[in-house]
Design a protein around this nucleic acid. Structure first.
Lengths: 114, 114
DNA sequence: TTTAAATGATACCATTTAGTTTCATAAGGA
DNA sequence: TCCTTATGAAACTAAATGGTATCATTTAAA
């Protein structure tokens, strides 16, 4: 039986990364863990809105939210971020080759200018 | 003057990557360039729908679409993919440290089991 | 020169998304 | 205890999203 919980797959991660506010939240959380209110203070929108973003980030496994007294501590989760990076890495061999070709073309052009 | 065109920033890329169909299109395009019809043949939806996805991928600079006679040739663009990878890389130092700590914790646990 | 194929453009639709407001509940501190 | 703070939950809205169907246009090919 599969315990109900956040989407472990790619979709949850990419969905979470699609919104600029959510990407910004991740940047803020690199400095330190924060309560929900602390995160919300850094944005020009209601706590309720920020809370929804945090839920989506949690579903994408990019952060974790753990209760601590009456607060919730929000923390960046590196494993989730790695899911997205790994997906992109599947293209890296491809773009390395293409970028090398591009570089060569640019250099060719440069040398002709002189 | 800035020529009108696809969004060069992060947002276009992450927006484009958010949809599973679009990510799948990218995978298909790693094997070879395709016309719009060829791409559409590989999906269970109308050409019009696929065309919209291609437009969003183009706006995110993940692909280019160039006319060739009455067809349009669709090609993967490595530079756009790199935009997303670069953004994620800003977290790599962070998650390397966290993953190292995680690894250590797991090993600690393992040694206690024995 | 017809005809068929590849694409563009537009209008339309249902669902999701990102935000708000309001009210309820739980937990710390004076 | 009383009050304040931190959060949850629900209802609502506007706009974006992902899809459809239909018709027009361009180009290759018989």
């Amino acid at each position: 039986m599969r315990t109900a919980g956040p989407d472990p797959g790619e979709q949850g991660v990419f969905r979470a990364l699609a919104d600029p506010t959510r990407r910004n939240i991740l940047v803020h959380l690199t400095s330190r863990d924060m309560t929900i209110a602390e995160v919300a203070d850094r944005f020009d929108m209601t706590r309720a809105a920020v809370r929804k973003h945090l839920t989506i980030l949690e579903e994408g496994r990019l952060i974790s939210i753990r209760p601590s007294g009456r607060e919730r501590l929000t923390r960046l989760e590196p494993l989730g971020l790695k899911t997205a990076a790994d997906w992109l890495d599947r293209f890296s061999r491809f773009w390395d080759a293409r970028l090398a070709a591009l570089q060569q073309a640019v250099e060719q052009e440069e040398s002709q200018k002189k």
